[in-house]
């Protein structure tokens, strides 16, 4: 008598494990596909995947006096809820996709209206100035906010070293352009590469930093590794990530979101509860991890330090 032990089921009939784990999704998908709209709905429902291995620690960090004494947002939330469209437009996309970003070797070209243009290696930048921990409020234009312990150094440390000329009125920052590493750059979601800019006096302000880490660790890819700008009194999109170029220019840079929607995203984009926004009320915000909304403060609570930069300007018009 022939007793078949193992091969009753042809290997071709065995459901692939990945597919098996997705069976619920599949059932939902198959049954509702008729509506034609399901694809969109399912994409939303994918749970965020947070990168597992903790990044290496940064050494020799000094505490900075530019620090707010407010409860810090959890590392999990800071690293799983990101707007970094180069890796997808969903908040969970960067955490899931940013592993493709290669952060070594990495250089930042500093050029334009300067006496001493220079291309800095990332490891050189890490030693350029003492690394400070700065706990900053971070306010997104989408009316949510966090409190993040950045590790970095003042942007003006770099600026001093390249000696800008009198023609340098603005600083333009550019993100890496490489669709192989940044998959969303294959699509026309935004005009790539991402460009941001500051006025010279804003860039020189001691609160403006280049961050290379957070929570004492090397900056996770989804947060803009290996080096990003942090300008805490402006909406988050001004704090450009994964910077490869810093140019000193005479005229106001054409910045990405400003080009996308000039009536929504001004060049300055200082946090301002008085300026109405067509999508989000800027009068209040949800601090991630908190239930009730908070009142949004002018300049994100940094008015004492930065308001003087804008004296004489009508900030309702120059938003």
């Amino acid at each position: 008598m022939l007793i078949k032990k193992t091969s009753d089921i042809k290997s071709s009939e065995i459901t692939d494990e990945k597919l098996y784990h997705k069976r619920r999704q599949f059932m939902v998908g198959a049954a509702t596909a008729a509506t034609g709209a399901l694809l969109a709905a399912c994409k939303k429902s994918a749970p965020p995947n947070v990168a597992t291995a903790p990044p290496p620690k940064l050494e020799g960090i000094v505490k900075s006096s530019f620090t707010v004494d407010e409860p810090q947002t959890s590392l999990k939330d800071i690293t799983s809820y990101n707007n970094f469209y180069e890796f997808g437009t969903d908040k969970s996309d960067p955490a899931a996709n940013a592993h493709t970003l290669i952060t070594r070797p990495w250089t930042v070209a500093v050029e334009g209206e300067v006496m001493k243009p220079k291309t800095f290696d990332i490891d050189e930048l890490l030693r350029l100035a003492p690394l400070e921990e700065r706990v900053y409020r971070f306010r997104c234009v989408e009316a949510w906010s966090m409190v993040i312990p950045w590790i970095g150094f003042p942007l003006n440390e770099i600026i001093k070293r390249v000696e800008p000329t009198s023609k340098a009125k603005f600083v333009q920052f550019t993100t890496l352009l490489d669709p192989r590493q940044m998959p969303e750059q294959r699509y026309g979601t935004l005009e790539w590469p991402y460009v941001e800019g500051l006025r010279m006096d804003e860039a020189m302000h001691p609160l403006a930093i280049l961050a290379v880490g957070l929570y004492g660790q090397v900056l996770p890819n989804q947060n803009g590794a290996p080096i990003r700008l942090v300008v805490p009194w402006k909406y988050g999109f001004k704090s450009i990530k994964s910077v490869v170029k810093i140019q000193f220019v005479e005229t106001q840079p054409r910045t990405t979101w400003n080009l996308m929607g000039p009536d929504e995203y001004g060049f300055y984009s200082n946090v301002n509860p008085e300026v109405n926004h067509p999508r989000w009320s800027q009068g209040s915000e949800r601090r991630i991890g908190e239930f009730k909304r908070r009142t949004t403060l002018p300049f994100n609570g940094y008015a004492d330090q930065v308001a003087s930069l804008y004296s004489g300007m009508d900030l309702r018009k120059e938003y």
Binding site: A37, L39, A40, K43, K44, Y85, T89
Partner: peptide
């Protein structure tokens, strides 16, 4: 509501 990527609303 969508800021930039209009793919999903376009499906609807």
């Amino acid at each position: 509501l969508v800021k930039a990527d209009i793919t999903e609303p376009m499906i609807y």
